[in-house]
């Protein structure tokens, strides 16, 4: 609660110095001001709702999001982009940040995700599991091995012992989703959250836990955060019961 005290102190000082032009732009900003959240693209919908809920609880704080591929975000932060919070879609990109000394706190996993096979609504090709993806007549797309969803998909396929010849290695998971929902591809491997987000345009075929992977979403306050107090408050909110409920509603699993 120390930040509350300090805030009160700041308000008191400001009251005294009002005539001298003391504004609200002092170094003392705590759970007020702006928080820049750099979050993985797959968190977009869930974090936007989280942001609104957080602002409802903390009206003094404005949350600004920058959604992109985790690897891009790490590069941006490394080049000095004004990030306060980094939420990654995998641990390896978070490790890149911590290895470079870019994290102010130990990363915490806020959510997990599993993979599913995404097919068109109604599952016209009757796909029941990973083994069916080996069919040469099927147009299968997965993510490129360079991005997390592609690494995970490769893990799933090798764990299941299935050889698949994908038609395309998409640069991100949304590319896989759109190829399936537009009918260009018959099946793809994506996160469970993506299937839920696609709603009626697609449906998912579960991948058994023994061959599935558990994708972890770590979050951390950055070293260069201009507003570490508010940044920490945001991270705390994501971990709170309310935050977890919102994540769960988008299909994320608890850490």
């Amino acid at each position: 609660m120390s930040h509350h005290l300090r805030r009160r102190a700041a308000v008191a000082v400001c009251s005294l110095l009002l005539a001298a032009g003391c504004g609200d732009d002092g170094d003392e900003a705590q759970t007020q001001g702006t928080v820049n959240v750099f979050a993985a693209a797959s968190l977009t919908a869930a974090f936007e709702e989280l942001g609104e809920a957080f602002t409802d609880a903390n009206p003094e704080v404005e949350v600004v999001f920058n959604f992109a591929a985790s690897s891009e975000l790490v590069t941006q932060i490394g080049e000095g982009a004004p990030a306060d919070v980094f939420a990654s879609a995998d641990t390896s990109n978070m490790t890149k940040l911590t290895d470079a000394g870019g994290a102010a706190s130990e990363p915490v996993v806020v959510a997990t995700n599993v993979l599913e096979i995404i097919v068109e609504s109604g599952n016209p090709r009757g796909i029941t599991g990973v083994a069916d993806l080996a069919d040469q007549d099927l147009v299968v797309v997965i993510c490129a091995p360079e991005v997390p969803c592609g690494r995970y998909a490769a893990d799933v396929l090798s764990a299941a012992g299935v050889a698949v010849t994908p038609k395309s290695l998409e640069q991100n998971v949304k590319g896989v989703v759109s190829k399936v929902t537009s009918g260009e591809a018959d099946a793809g491997i994506v996160y469970r959250t993506d299937v839920i987000a696609a709603a009626s345009d697609a449906e998912g075929v579960a991948i058994p836990a023994d061959v599935n992977v558990l994708a972890e979403y770590p979050i951390a306050v950055t070293e260069q955060a201009a507003n570490p107090e508010a940044a920490q408050a945001f991270v705390d909110f994501v971990l709170s019961a309310e935050g977890q409920a919102i994540l769960a509603s988008f299909g994320f699993l608890a850490p």
Binding site: A69, E72, E146, K167, L169, E170, S178, K179
Partner: peptide
Amino acid sequence: ITFAGNFPGTTQTMPLAVYLSLETNP
């Protein structure tokens, strides 16, 4: 990348290769 996708040898042109290698090997 949207219309033709990305597959080495078939549809992965230089800009696609550059973009994807940015992910892992800048």
